[in-house]
Amino acid sequence: MARQTGPVSTTLGARDGGIAAVAVSDIARRFGRRWALRGVSLHVEPGTIAALVGHNGSGKTTLLRIIATTLRPTRGSGSVFGHDLVRDANRVRDLVAVLGHTPGLYGDLTARENLEFALRMSGRAPTRRDIDAALDRVGLAADANELVRTFSAGMQRRLALARVILRGARLILLDEPYAAFDADGIALVNGFLAEHKAAGGAAIVATHDPVRAAPVVDRFWAIDHGRVTPTEPALLLAAAAGRDPAAAFAATGAIVAGHADPKRAVL
């Protein structure tokens, strides 16, 4: 688990060249009469994995969709690696890959064809080597030529992850990435995130389950009723585990020597 040595601030990670991977300011979004986001401001720096933790309907997915440019904010502004989310949306899409709630796959195509299609739609020529490597990475090499509609939910999530890996984007947005995954799948997601971070990429993980994200996440944010606040990981983990903080930390395997009191622990 990454360590946070100072007080939680509104800036995640160390600034690198002054350009934030994600910078949003006072973002709000309304659906009809309901405000899904009510003025969110946050920065995520390159080389940082941030987690947005909140219950269903708290606004996690809406915020990710705005950052991914598939949804326009009602109010506020934002950028990805310096490119405006609204005015320069096409450039932003070139820099972002998303693992969504739903896999976004085509059941009547094979796993390989789905990845070839994704690469072609990204403006890249698919190579057999790249696709084989991505399928192998997610454990679907043997199922490359099977139709996706025969896959289990977990296999479809793995294939969607392979698509994210193949895109090679600088910013990864993951919406409930641990859903439908077994223990191996969770390790796969976290392994990929750790590599992505080491390569200088950034990611935002939206989840209602901070325990699973904890090993790779640098900073946690709580999102509730469309408002985001930086938060102490220990408290989040405790709340998620539904028991006392010590037990929550034990569940993550993340107790760090010298920080036996989880309320004082650093991540």
Binding site: R65, A68, T69, T70, N90, R91, R93, D94, V96, A97, V98, G100, H101, T102, P103, G104, L105, Y106, G107, A118, M121, S122, G123, Q156
Partner: peptide
């Protein structure tokens, strides 16, 4: 309908390009 099944339309709109 092909795009709406499994959230593929959202994914389609995420690709860069016109």
């Amino acid at each position: 309908q092909l795009e709406l099944d499994g959230g593929a339309l959202e994914q389609l709109l995420l690709y860069p390009g016109s």
